[in-house]
Each structure stands twice: as structure tokens, then as C-alpha cells.
Design a protein around this nucleic acid. Structure first.
Lengths: 221, 221
DNA sequence: GTCTATACTCCGATAGAC
DNA sequence: GTCTATCGGAGTATAGAC
């Protein structure tokens, strides 16, 4: 059981240091010093630095995905197997956003770690995100139930754009703050969620009107 | 003038190798071998690996920003100092998207390098992107001229979401392909541009209707 | 001014003793 | 399971040749 203590100590120290200083600035030697364990223990317990990062990210990712699905199930149950489109999109983006935003001082190591994971996009984390497709398919299906008349391809674009706005808000919140000179309030998580959901719902319906805008744009040139 | 040859050889080799294999897998020793120059030449001409990457990215970035501004000026000139909102947003996202997409086989080293820069988000490139605020402010101003009745804060959110959709489409095109099983066509650049612009225009107007959607969502829960 | 050879520091990984 | 010692390879710094 001393094994588990060492393992856990490494995980906690790594999460905190990565959250504080980012992936690029933290070495395994920093982590083991913080955890009070030996350097070789990392490779013994995790195999490699990348696999340590993978385990940290997967753990948090699974928790977020669980929340997402729970919200989706609840919304669909309330609607008798079919949730309105904004509720589906809310279930998709809200858990991620809630996990990252909120009053800056109160952010947990886990929250700040996930922000770093979005911003720095290190190799092991990119690999995992590319395997998220199966999970996303469940939301695509729910979106189709919500809008059965919409062409399937529009569903995928809409889902894609919804994630785009959510993740980009996490990743580039600093630039948005600077650009707006503080006018965009990033401390009110629920307001951000409303904003993203709202924009995503409209974006979802925009694909079917592509001909009109194209014509208007061409006329302007 | 031998100086310029060495410098240029390093830049070309670096851009090509980074485009082919990504930042994480390419070392300075790979680059100097490809360029046929000595290892120390990199530090002599650029100072550090990060500054080499910075120079590559800044060069391409300036070119893209020039295209963006040219399109914006043209659109505003055609409208007598005021362009329609979709033309402004098109000027913002089209040059970036055109530079990255198109038939996969025909992509230049520069295009593939910029895709890598978006996907891997390495430190020196993140720093530059955070300094792009001044450039974006010109588009915020043009957006305000196009929609003078819209609250300023909505302009910033709209600009933010437009960039979100454009960049996320570049960054996660692979996942979108997999999710849609090839239904989302990423070879037709202009269609992607139309789609992003269209969604961004609608997203821009969504912020003012926040109260309504919130009420609808709450009712659904 | 340019370029080269070489050495230095630090990283992640591993073999083997305990 | 844990630790020591060490490895190859990374980016960097510098002395000196041209």
C-alpha cells in the first residue's frame, strides 16, 4: 500500500505544479521533489512522463463526460426522451465551462490543470481528445432527436461550432479580456454558458441558409 | 551574402520539417542536417530555437494580417466607408482559412506549418497570438461601424466567437471528419468560409436575446 | 562577420543493487 | 517497490578558424 501513497503523491504534485506553471516549465525532477519521492518512481508507476499526463487528463475528462451525459439524460427524461436543442447543447458545454471558470481565486488544481491542458495542447492530451468521438456521437444523436428535420451534416457542423466557442473561450479568455478591456465578464460562468449555448443554437440553423449569405457577400464585393 | 544563404536555408528547412512532422518531433539537429549547415548557426542567426519558430510564424502571420486588412479596406471602400457585417467577418476569417485548407495534396509548407502552429500551440507562438490584440481592434471598429446599434460588448463576443469557429475548424478538422464520417466537406475552402461567416453573423446577434433563451432553458430543467 | 568544433547543462529513461 | 547511478539526446554557450 506504500505503492498507492507514492502513486497518489506523484499525481497530486504533478497536477498542482502543471496547474501553477504549465507543462513546459515543469520537469519530472520538479514533480518528484514536490512529492517527496524518487525520480525513478515516476517511470515505475506510470511508464513515462506522457503517460502520467495522460492519466491526469483522463481522470478529469471522465468526470466531465459523466456530468455531460447526466445532464443530457436528465434533460431528455424531462422531455419524454427528447430534449430541446438548447438543453442538449447546454449539457455538452456547461460541465466543461463550469469546470474551468468561476472566481479566479477559487479555482481548484484540477480546474487550472484542465485550462492548461486546453491552452498548451501537449501531445498526450491531443491524442486523447481525438478519441472522444464516440462520446460526442451521443450528443449528435440527441441533437438529431431535437431537430429531426435538420440535415445530418448540419448537426455535425453545429456540434463542432458549439465546442469551438466553448473551448476557445477557455483557451483565449486572456485575449478576450484584453481586447474588450474587461467589458466581457468571465467571472459569471452561467452567463458564459448561456452565451455559448445561445450562439451555438443560432449557428446550428445557419448552415441551411448558406445560399442567401453567399449571394449577399458577393454583391458587397 | 553567404549569411543570407545560411539563414534562408535554416528557415526553409525548419518550415518544411515542422510542417511535415510537427514541432515536438523535430530537433535543431534535424533542421541543420536538412539545411546542410552547422548546429551553432541557428543560435548565431536566431538566438534560440524559440526565436527561430517565432520568426517563421511572424512572417506568415504578417502576410495573413495584410490580406485581412486589404479585404476589409476593399469591402469598406465599396460601401462608402462602411461594409456589411458579413463582409467584415469574412475579411477576418477568410485569409486564415484559405491559407490552411484546400486540396490536401497541394498545401504548401507554409500552409501546413500554420496548421501545426494552430494544433500544437507551442510557447513562442502563443506569445505572439496574445499580442495580436491591436490588429483585432481594427476589426472590432469595423464591426461597430457595420452595426452601430449593437452594444460594444456584443461586438467583442462576436469577434471572439468568429475566431473560435475559424481556428477550431483548422485545429480539429480531423475530429470533425471522423465524427461526421466524411460528410463535412473540408476540401471546399469557400464553403467553409461561408459557413463560418454565416454562423458568426448569427452568433453576433445572439447576445442581445440572452434573457429569452435562459428562460426557455430553465423551464426545460 | 560567418561559421565550425566542441563542451556544457539539463531532461526523460533505464539497468541493476537493495 | 524503491533508490542510485548512468545513459543518450536535447538546447545552448563559447573559443577560435576563416
Amino acid at each position: 500500500m506504500a505503492s498507492d501513497q507514492t502513486r497518489t503523491a506523484i499525481l497530486r504534485a504533478a497536477e498542482r505544479l502543471y496547474a501553477d506553471r504549465g507543462f513546459a516549465d515543469v520537469t519530472l525532477r520538479d514533480i518528484v521533489a514536490e512529492a517527496g519521492v524518487n525520480l525513478a518512481a515516476v517511470n515505475y508507476h506510470f511508464g513515462s512522463k506522457d503517460e502520467l499526463i495522460t492519466e491526469l487528463f483522463v481522470t478529469r475528462s471522465i468526470a466531465t463526460n459523466r456530468e455531460r451525459l447526466a445532464e443530457l439524460k436528465a434533460a431528455e427524461a424531462a422531455g419524454g426522451g427528447r430534449a430541446p436543442i438548447d438543453a442538449v447543447l447546454r449539457a455538452l458545454v456547461a460541465p466543461t465551462l463550469r469546470g474551468c471558470f468561476g472566481p479566479e481565486g477559487e479555482r481548484s488544481d484540477a480546474a487550472r490543470f484542465m485550462i492548461r491542458a486546453s491552452v498548451e495542447a501537449v501531445a498526450p492530451i491531443r491524442k486523447i481528445k481525438n478519441r472522444e468521438v464516440d462520446h460526442l456521437r451521443k450528443f449528435a444523436a440527441a441533437m438529431q432527436r431535437a431537430m429531426p428535420e435538420l440535415p445530418e451534416v448540419e448537426i455535425y457542423w453545429g456540434l463542432h461550432f458549439a465546442l469551438a466557442m466553448a473551448h476557445h473561450t477557455i483557451r483565449d479568455s486572456e485575449r478576450l479580456q484584453k481586447l474588450s478591456e474587461g467589458q466581457c465578464d468571465l467571472d459569471d460562468v452561467e452567463a458564459i454558458v448561456d452565451r455559448v449555448v445561445n450562439a451555438a443554437v443560432l449557428a446550428l440553423q445557419s448552415g441551411t441558409k448558406l445560399g442567401e449569405t453567399k449571394a449577399r457577400s458577393r454583391r458587397a464585393n
